[in-house]
């Protein structure tokens, strides 16, 4: 299950279920979303294909590092929350 917030929600919708192969990682899931929605690809990844470093990621409501933890394998039923911080005032 993917929970998207703020501008990611406008692209992906509030929640969506994604079926992945066994052993798929957080990066696999993000790439699947990026392939399905070019606007998400542009919003979440830079020109080199790296995840933008300010994007917040949580697996089962626990924070993971957007650089170090992308290779973390996901389990059936895991929930990934993705959120771009807002900066305006």
């Amino acid at each position: 299950m993917v929970l998207a917030f703020a501008s990611f929600r406008e692209i992906l919708g509030k929640e969506r279920e994604i079926c992945l192969v066994e052993g798929a990682t957080v990066r696999d899931l993000l790439e699947e979303l990026a392939a399905a929605r070019p606007a998400f690809n542009e919003a979440a990844f830079d020109d080199t294909g790296a995840l933008r470093d300010y994007v917040l990621l949580m697996v089962n409501r626990k924070r993971i590092d957007p650089i170090l933890d992308l290779s973390r394998p996901l389990q059936d039923g895991d929930e990934l929350a993705i959120f771009p911080p807002l900066a305006g005032g």
Partner: peptide, 10 residues
């Protein structure tokens, strides 16, 4: 802390 962007806020 507070921040906004369009319809979104935190």
């Amino acid at each position: 802390h507070g921040a906004i962007n369009g319809y979104q806020g935190q």
